[in-house]
Computed example of a mutant assay.
Amino acid sequence: MDKTGRVQSVDRVVQILKCFTEKRPELKLTEIADELGLNKSTVHGLINTLKYHGLIDQDEDTQRYRLGIYLMRLGDLVASSIDIIGIARPFIVYLCNQVEETVHLGRLDDLEVIYIDKVESTQSMRISSARGARNPAYCTGVGKAMLAYLDEKKLNQILPEKWEGFTPTTITEKQKLLKELEKVKESGFAFDFEEKDIGLTCVAAPIFDYAGKANYAISVSGPSIRMTDEKIELTKVLLKKATMEISQKIGYRG
């Protein structure tokens, strides 16, 4: 144990696990040893211990190492223990106070959005909604903010070719929506310009978790007459800051 109270062997185990990245999901023993500046016998002993506990796997043919299945269980435990509503609440309250419009925290459930929290505007003309309410994801800003980051193959599987239109501006065709979602990924923001309800405009941005998935998003919604270009630009700045801070609090490192 050093002066900081850290145990050297545990430090080395953590360093071994951190060697694996998206770009380098599999590594040879020599690659790990060289990266950490340790001799192969030391690294081999630590890796064998990690293998025993399911934290490291080894390909029998290539002899390369990769992260173990048990880490997925630990990741699921972390994800289930995160109180996204509690973490996001101060941010959506602040957003509501700054823009004076209704703010929602949404979760994606297949092709629907579930509103899991909200803070309503105090203005006399405002958007009224209920926690637990659902809306189609394809015609809401908060829904599109999450759909855009789904795996492309999965998105193509779950989207029908056509669907119901609620207003004249609702996107009702798969290919048009896919193009719209590409724009969302490019800009980081999703919009609903009266696509679900006439007179309602919405700006939304995704929240990313530790795995880089956008399972949650925040939207700011208000009467179109009040959602001017100036207010939309202010909302985008505040939304980007809020969603990034929330993402970091739940483990996002992008």
Rank of each mutant, 00 (worst) to 15 (best):
T4H: 02
G5E: 05
R6G: 04
S9L: 03
R12T: 09
V13T: 12
Q15H: 12
K18C: 12
F20H: 06
E26M: 02
L29V: 02
E31S: 12
E35V: 04
L36P: 05
L36N: 00
S41F: 03
I47D: 10
Y52H: 12
D57W: 06
Q63E: 13
I69S: 13
S80W: 00
S81A: 15
I85M: 03
P90T: 00
C96H: 06
E101S: 03
R107A: 13
R107D: 05
L111E: 11
I114L: 12
S121G: 07
S121H: 02
S121A: 08
M125W: 05
I127H: 10
A130E: 14
A133W: 03
R134N: 12
K144I: 05
A145C: 04
L150I: 04
L150V: 08
D151E: 08
E161C: 09
T167A: 02
I171F: 03
E173V: 10
K174M: 01
K174A: 08
L178E: 07
K179Y: 00
E182N: 11
E182H: 11
E186F: 06
D192T: 01
I207Q: 03
K213T: 02
A214Y: 06
P223S: 14
R226L: 09
R226W: 05
M227D: 04
D229I: 04
E230D: 13
K231T: 11
I232D: 07
L234A: 11
T235N: 09
T235K: 06
K236H: 02
V237E: 15
E245T: 09
S247H: 07
Y252R: 04
G254N: 08
